[in-house]
Design a binder for these strands. Structure first.
Length: 426
DNA sequence: ACTGATGCGTC
DNA sequence: GTCGGAC
DNA sequence: GTCCGACGACGCATCAGT
């Protein structure tokens, strides 16, 4: 598929704020692929729609280009100095629109002198595959001179793009595509186009949350059907999407959840999803980056104190004082977010992993098991240590109990508390 | 070898 | 992480 | 209530320029 077709979709999506209309644009676009049975680029199209090059679970580098660098690129390409471009940027509001504005002027001028380059001017020839491989090159370029190399590749791309295409190209590069759709809306569009019924959304949503690669899910859907999408399950080595909490006044907990419910400390640290396969420990961040290298001490304590050959679980890693008595605030932990001198800093800033959930044990998925069942299993398999504990969790029966739990939580340096329903399906 | 600008990812 | 807009 | 995007603080990595 040509990039101009995708650009047109971006443009359509951007033209409305109505979700239903966006879903309609998406499903029409997908139905067109369906008619032509042209699924070759489906995964790449999905990634680009998400404003990304690869799904988060692929540990692929970022572009390393953002607004300031793009201004340089536009400047080089158009001959307009960067100060002037910044002025236009303020007026236009975004870097993509700025480029579109400048280029459409320039190309008009150019066409007066150079009739031979009509194709270049219309910019309609760029294949998504080519765009994609060039973008990958930009992301993979590193080291001395990488700056210029990246800009060089980008200039090449811009010269093959129409102003409209350039607009979205630059937005993709700067991670500001913002056409109003993200995973949930894309899933709706896919569901409608390829299953005909919006009710099937849950199937795709579930598959995506357990294997967060929407490009791959789409491919399964179009090539093998919904039946195969249903079979997608949590796997070792593939991090699942994090369940996010929402903020609420804690006195509202009883109203919403009824009693009893479970309350846990909300810790001021960094969330980790841990995959243990034998001696092999992988730690994933909330955005599914593999950050195992950052916490060798955590990996070690898991290796030695989690009595399960294969297991996936979640916890919050928190900075501790040297006696492992007091939890320290997030800023202290953030010193651990580094690539070099990892061993030194891990001695300087000790941490404790507070485990709070179990996702898979052996070959058995725990994602649909009840909270108490998951907790019980965790208690069985984890030998608590200074550096590895289960998060404090209690059953709350009354407002009085809630109040006192909240107060102790705050006293001990927590951010607050988490409330979890004890219903089976949550 | 050092510094500032830029980019990135956590909360 | 928070916030607010659109639906 | 759901979804998306705009926003901020902080610390570290990388690279260009010197």
């Amino acid at each position: 598929m040509k990039f101009n077709k995708l650009s047109q979709l971006f443009s359509d999506l951007e033209s409305t704020t109505k979700r239903l209309e966006m879903i309609d644009f998406l499903s029409k676009f997908f139905e067109d692929l369906k008619e032509k049975e042209d699924y070759r680029d489906i995964d790449k199209i999905i990634y680009l729609l998400q404003g990304q090059l690869t799904p988060n679970i692929k540990q692929f580098p970022k572009m390393g280009l953002a607004e300031k660098m793009i201004i340089e690129a536009i400047s080089l390409h158009s001959g307009i100095n960067s100060k002037r471009i910044k002025e236009i940027l303020i007026k236009q509001g975004d870097i993509g629109a700025t480029a579109e504005f400048i280029l459409s002027k320039k190309k008009k001028q150019k066409s007066l002198f150079d009739y031979n380059k009509v194709e270049e001017i219309s910019g309609s020839s760029l294949e998504i595959l080519e765009l994609y491989s060039e973008l990958k090159k930009i992301a993979l370029t590193e080291g001395i001179g990488s700056h210029d190399t990246k800009l060089g590749i980008l200039r090449g791309l811009i010269s093959k793009c129409s102003p409209l295409e350039t607009k979205y190209l630059l937005r993709i590069i700067t991670s500001t595509l913002r056409v109003g759709v993200q995973s949930q809306t894309i899933i709706e569009g896919l569901t409608l186009a390829f299953t005909g019924k919006r009710d099937n959304k849950g199937v795709i949503e579930r598959a995506y949350s357990l294997s967060p690669d929407l490009g791959e899910i789409s491919r399964i859907l179009v090539e093998k059907g919904l039946v195969e999408v249903k079979k997608v399950d949590i796997e070792y080595g593939t991090p699942i999407l994090s369940m996010l909490a929402s903020r609420e006044i804690y006195t509202e907990f009883t109203n919403r959840l009824g009693v009893p419910f479970v309350a846990e400390y909300k810790l001021d640290g960094e969330r980790l999803q841990i995959h243990k396969v034998g001696e092999n420990i992988t730690l994933f961040s909330r955005r599914l980056l593999d950050i195992s290298f950052q916490y060798p001490d955590v990996c070690k304590v898991i290796r030695e104190n989690v009595k399960a050959n294969k297991v996936i679980f979640e916890g919050e890693v928190v900075a501790m004082d040297h006696f492992y008595e007091k939890m320290l605030p997030f800023q202290v932990l953030s010193k651990r977010r580094r690539k070099f001198d990892v061993e030194d800093i891990s001695k300087e800033v000790p941490v404790c992993l507070f485990v709070f959930d179990l996702l898979k044990f052996g070959e058995e998925s725990f994602v649909d098991k009840s909270l108490s069942f998951r907790r019980k299993k965790l208690e069985e398999i984890i030998d608590e240590k200074d550096e590895l504990r289960l998060v404090k969790s209690v059953l709350i029966n009354s407002t009085e109990e809630l109040l006192s739990f909240f107060n102790t939580a705050r006293k001990e340096g927590n951010e607050g508390i988490m409330a979890k329903s004890i219903q089976e399906n949550s």
